[in-house]
Computed example of a mutant assay.
Amino acid sequence: MDIDPRLIGRVQDVIKAREQRRPRNAAAQQRGIRLLTPQDSTPELWIYDEISWWGVCAADVAAQLNGHRGDLHVRINSPGGDVFEGFAIYNMLAQLDGTVTVTVEGLAASAASFIAMAGDEIRMCLASQMMIHDPWGVCVGAADDMRGMAGVLDSLAETLAAIYAERAGGDVATWRETMRGEQWYNPQEAVDAGLADEIVTPKRGGDNEPDEGQLAASRWDPSLFQFRYAGRPEAQQGEAPTPVDPGEANPADQPSTAADAGGEPSEGADQPASTDREPAAASAAAASAAGEQPETAPTSAVEPEPAPPNPWADAVAALLEPEPSTTDELLMSLQEKGLA
């Protein structure tokens, strides 16, 4: 398959720009993973980066845990990443012979959220969030390739839903439906959903709860990871409104008095209300007889709600946008020189 080299160049430019925007550790040689072994305390494994070969991969975790036995405290602040690397990390932690305690210290999103499910005890810091969603991927090829990729993504989603169901309870189908909506959880919501066991409160500070928009996870740029929302406050999740039976009338639309319903006014009804309507009806009838249209109050047009942003479609459109020097301009130049 021939690919326009200009398109390849623009893809490389996008990847380079993404790498430049990705958060880095202060020291270039320091990866976002570390195993601390303090004296008289449980060893701590820090996972503070994306789950991928350019962040924290399964090989990094295996190298840190080489020969480890006993309890382990895992601290997570990650936007997620590669599903298969996440599976390997989850399985390593779940198979340790000691007690695994997981603390979400900023963000546990996507692959990082199911890695957290490997903990025997899962804790959410007061200023932290968790997010679960359907896996996504990129495929290039024919229709059969696209259908095959869809099957792979469905299979991965079933596996993820089974992990959440095993840890939090419920059935796989329910968790699959929840994942489709990209569900964000603050600490209390994660505990209520069964995805966490407790909330860790700060040892110091006042009694005021932190603003959800000012989390330790704010150093991550959600637009780089194709999330629908930038966090729990932007998701605006809540209970759905109770549906109304179309056959039932809305009480607000019902007439409040017999006169409003077109019947005889009651003794306590305000009589001028009906007399005010009579001249209006007579004027409308006269205007109709004269061939004129009665004036009506202007109605305000209801603007449709804007479509939600689709950063993936914008990125594809930007890649396919032609360079300033187009093929037509090149052909015109060749024709002017008598070469075409």
Rank of each mutant, 00 (worst) to 15 (best):
D2C: 03
R6I: 03
G9S: 14
R10P: 11
A17S: 13
E19A: 08
E19L: 12
R21Q: 03
R24A: 11
N25C: 02
N25S: 08
A28C: 04
Q29V: 01
Q29C: 03
R31T: 13
G32R: 14
R34C: 10
S41P: 06
P43H: 09
Y48L: 02
V56M: 04
C57L: 02
C57Y: 04
D60T: 13
A63P: 15
Q64R: 07
R69Y: 05
L72A: 00
H73W: 14
H73Q: 12
I76F: 08
G80N: 04
G81L: 03
G81I: 03
V83M: 05
A88W: 07
A88Y: 02
N91H: 15
N91P: 04
M92I: 15
M92Y: 14
L93S: 01
L96I: 01
G98V: 05
V102G: 15
E105C: 02
L107H: 00
A109D: 01
F114C: 01
I115H: 00
E121Y: 05
M124L: 06
S128K: 01
M131D: 11
H133K: 05
W136V: 07
M146A: 12
S155I: 02
A157F: 05
A162G: 08
Y164W: 11
G170L: 05
V172C: 05
V172A: 13
E182Q: 14
E182W: 02
E182V: 13
Q183S: 09
W184C: 01
N186G: 14
Q188C: 11
Q188H: 05
V191N: 01
G194Y: 06
L195E: 01
E198V: 11
T201M: 05
R204K: 09
G206C: 03
A217S: 04
S218D: 05
W220H: 05
P222G: 14
L224Q: 14
F225G: 03
F227T: 04
Y229T: 10
R232G: 00
E234H: 08
Q237W: 01
Q237M: 03
Q237R: 06
P246G: 00
P251E: 15
S256N: 10
A259C: 11
A259W: 10
A261K: 00
G263Y: 08
E264Y: 12
P265S: 11
G268H: 15
A269R: 12
P272T: 04
D276E: 12
E278R: 07
A282H: 10
A284L: 01
A284G: 06
A286P: 08
A287L: 12
S288Y: 01
A297M: 08
T299S: 02
T299Y: 05
A301C: 01
A301N: 09
P306Y: 11
A307D: 11
A307F: 08
N310L: 00
N310P: 03
P311G: 09
W312A: 07
W312P: 06
A313Q: 08
A313S: 09
A315N: 13
A317G: 13
A318Q: 13
E323N: 15
S325M: 06
E329I: 14
S333V: 09
L339M: 15
L339P: 14
